[in-house]
Each structure stands twice: as structure tokens, then as C-alpha cells.
Amino acid sequence: MPERPAAAAIVGGQKRAIAQALNLIEDRRSAAQADIASLLAELRDARGAGIGHRVGLTGPPGVGKSTLTSALARELRARGRTVGVVAVDPSSVRSGGALLGDRARMSFDPADAGLFVRSLATAGEAGGLAYAAPASVEVLAAAYEVVLVETTGVGQTETDVEYVVDTVTLVIQPGSGDVLQFIKAGIMEIPDVLVVNKGDHGRLAERAAADLTGALDSLRGVGMADAGEGWRVPVCITSARDRVGIDRLADLLDAHRTGLGEQGLRTRRGRGAVAWGLDLFRRQHGDHGVGALGGHAALRGALQALVERGADPVTAARTLSERYLSKLRRDGD
């Protein structure tokens, strides 16, 4: 069994302990689950809630997300912020193997204690996030002030990036009309910040940004844009390659986090915790388990109650799991 590191060592930013924690939470053996739950609970206690900033960078393949993530991490470090990065890459369906090649785009100083990068493979998960991503974010958020989650895909499932971060950034490149169509047609959730990367494409980039701004305005007209919370979704042009626009992006992310306030943050993280708990439960017990506890809405309500009382999602899911199993036993009697 992987060693369970001390929560204090993780919160203290010891990389060896953080790495061990990440190894542990990826462990899918049932024997490891109790350890994972207690580690996450300890981290929650050690760190306190409502702090830090979790940022998602998502978008179609090839738009330069990795280079942008690297540039953003560097910008945040320059501002004195410590940064954890979770980079998610798809696994091969055929072999189960994965090339976590995005790391090649990260240039970093190995002696920097304030930066930690972990790659995860999706292992065939829908929604673009890996099984271990929510827990990895929890671990890194215990140690670092900002956690960046970089992932491919713009899906709409409960394992999607919007459930693990406070601020969703959608990255597109000039000339990719698809994304605009998706947004207009309401197929895609509206992110909190829109980035047109590869701004070095000049007028093409400006045109794409103008189109997006126009689309947002018309959606606003029918009350469909902006997630409430008094936030107006901005469009930002960057060139990760030429290091242009990164400072503005960092400012916008800060502004969104500040705008969320305590209440907004609690709402988002609570929603994410419920989605994560639900996902864990469904993985283990399937539709039968969901049905046995009264369906999705009831399960969500039960999770919500547990989370509001301070349970972490893994523990909450385990509690529901026990409820289900004892119900099975009762029904069997």
C-alpha cells in the first residue's frame, strides 16, 4: 500500500509528501479508499475552507493550452503566488496507455519549491477529467495558493472541469468557428473567462475575439450569458508563445475569484463536492445504487447535507455507500 503522508507535510509544501499523497489518491484498490478518505479529511482540517483559487483551462486540442498554462504559472510565480498544476491527457482506448506529452511544453525551474506539476491520464473517462483529478486538486490546493487544471474537451458531464474549479477558462484559437457555434447554440456552458490564444495571428485573433464578444452580447440580450454573481464574461487575447496578454489574463482570473466572494465560492465548491460524491457513488454502485437511495435528486440532497456539515466528498460518498449496503442487507433479511 502506498504510504500515507502527514497532512502537515503536504500543507507545508514538502514535494515528496505531496507526490506520495497524489500516488495514494490515484490508487483504486478498495483497501486504499479508507486511507484516501482520511487523508482528504485531514487536509481539509489542516488547511481550512474558503481559501485559494482553482482555475480550469479547457478547450479543444491544439489551441496551445499547455504553453498557456506554463506561461500563466510563470506569471503567477512572478507575482509571488505558489502554483500547483494538474494536466489531464487522454488515454488510448486500445492499450490503456497514455502519453502525458504536454509536460514538454512546461519549462520550469526544478529548484522552485512553489511550483508542482502532475499529469493525469483520463483512463477512458468521459468529460475530459481523470478519475483522480478532483482529489488531486484537493491535495495540491492544500499546498499551493493557485491550482491550475488543464484539460481537453468542452463536454457537459458531472466529471467535467467546471466541478473542480472556481473559475473556468475556455481557450480557443483564431479561426475555430466551432466553439462560437457551440456557445451560440447553447451546447456549451459559458465559461467565466474566454481566451483567444495564438494572438500572434494578429487580425485573425482580433476578429475571433470580436465575434465572441458579439455572441456574448446577443446572449446577454436574452439573459443567457454570465453565470450570475455580477460577473461579466470577458474575452482576452493572449499569445503564450510571445508571452503577450498573460498578465491581463492573470488579472481577470483574480478579478473573477474576488468577485465570487465567500458566498459564491461556497456555492461553487459545494456544487463540485456534490458532483464528485455522486460520481464516486455511481462508479461503485451504478444505477441500481442511485435508484435504491431514491434517485439522483434525493442522492444529491443527501450529499449536499453531508457536505454542508463539513464532510469531504469521499467520506460523504462512503457514508451513502454504507447506507446503500445496509439497505441491501435489510432488504435481504
Binding site: L22, G96, A98, L99, L100, G101, A104, P110
Partner: peptide, 24 residues
């Protein structure tokens, strides 16, 4: 079927070890 981390060329021993640790 391995999960593979490859960082490209010109990586220092320090960077390699930091990566090996962080990536587990």
C-alpha cells in the same frame, strides 16, 4: 499500456528528478 511522461529534449538531471518525483 504504460502512462508515459516525456518532456522533450535538453532536460537537466535536476529537472528529470523533479519530474519523476512530482509525477510519481
Amino acid at each position: 499500456g504504460f502512462e508515459v511522461v516525456y518532456e522533450g529534449i535538453r532536460v537537466t538531471p535536476e529537472q528529470l528528478v523533479a519530474t519523476a518525483l512530482e509525477e510519481g
